[in-house]
């Protein structure tokens, strides 16, 4: 395979920072096939420059509005910003209405900002299956800051943790009591906790609850700050950007390599799992059917059924 980007080819235009090439590359990367491999190969030397910042939190906490205000803050600091904003796909039809960028309309005509709406396409975990690769493309295209905005996340959409250098978890005031705050879940992955909509009456209490939750944690090198913002009034943004830059400054090459390795591991596990899922849930495969029937009638146990289905899968796979 030829690894050098063709002159004026898609990869070359992407590396030169052309937004139209980035847009096309993202569509290609969301698919499969040889074109994806070629594209990924040609951007390898250009990865690892951008700071990847993840924004997650429950629906309605103000993620998109805060991202919009954050873009403005970073533009003010002379940084270019690319955003991948994920909204859910319908589990029934596969369709989606992607509306995150409605809140970011003021940046549409800024050539230092690229925004892309992604549909989750059935992927659980808060992002889309290709989100990590989309972030890589944005990095390779030369943006200083790459923002990953998840779907409105519940308590366990922690996938963003493996993809972002800096993880922001946004809460809105008054969601749940202090027991919610000590449950396991997305609060645990935060490098920075943000209480948005800080003009609401319960905002101070939410900040205090999060602070007391943090006080119970084992000490570590990074002290998680709890910040208040008002994304509409644009308050608290300099503090947020400062905290992000401080955390990003702690990035190490070793850490980045470890993160890349765990992302790749996760991607492979997910893709392999998807194959098994298709075989069991969708393909009307006679061997799979026989194993399912045997399990249902308690002729074999779950562990045996699992080995049988994996063995069958192994035999039926084409060699590549």
């Amino acid at each position: 395979m030829n690894d050098t980007p063709e002159k004026n080819g898609l990869a070359a235009r992407l590396l030169a920072g052309q937004p139209a090439a980035l847009a096309r590359a993202i569509s290609i990367i969301e698919g499969e096939g040889e074109a994806v491999t070629r594209l990924l190969k040609s951007i390898q030397p250009n990865l690892g420059r951008a700071v990847v910042v993840g924004f997650t939190g429950p629906p309605g906490a103000g993620k998109s509005t805060l991202v919009n205000a954050f873009i403005a803050e970073m533009r003010g600091r002379g940084k270019t910003v690319a955003v991948a904003a994920v909204d859910p796909s319908s589990p029934i039809t596969g369709g989606a209405v992607l509306g995150d960028r409605i809140r970011m309309a003021e940046h549409t005509m800024d050539s230092g900002v690229y925004i892309r709406s992604l549909a989750s396409r059935g992927h659980l975990g808060g992002l889309s299956a290709s989100a990590a690769r989309v972030a890589d493309l944005m990095d390779a295209a030369g943006y200083d800051v790459v923002v990953l905005e998840t779907v409105g996340a519940g308590q366990s959409e922690v996938e963003m943790a493996e993809m972002a250098d800096v993880r922001i978890v946004i809460s809105a005031p008054g969601l749940g009591d202090d027991v919610q705050a000590i449950k396991a879940g997305i609060l645990e992955i935060a490098d920075i906790l943000v209480v948005n909509k800080d003009d609401l009456p319960l905002a101070n209490r939410t900040v205090r609850q999060l602070q007391s939750m943090l006080a119970l944690r084992a000490p570590s090198d990074w002290k998680v700050p709890v910040l208040s913002t008002n994304a509409v009034e644009r308050t608290g943004l300099p503090e947020l950007a400062d905290a992000i830059e401080s955390k990003a400054a702690l990035r190490t090459i070793k850490g980045a390599r470890a993160a890349l390795s765990s992302r790749t591991r996760r991607l492979l596990a997910q893709t392999a799992a998807k194959h098994v899922e298709d075989l069991i849930l969708r393909d009307q495969n006679p061997t799979a059917e026989a194993i399912i029937t045997a399990l249902q009638q308690a002729d074999i146990d779950l562990r045996t059924a699992t080995s049988k289905i994996l063995k069958h899968m192994h035999e039926s796979l084409p060699d590549e």
């Binding site: 319908s90 039809t93 596969g94 369709g95 989606a96 209405v97 992607l98 509306g99 960028r101 709406s117």
Partner: peptide, 8 residues
Amino acid sequence: RDAGMEVI
């Protein structure tokens, strides 16, 4: 959307 398309 209901026909399976992604609508921006």
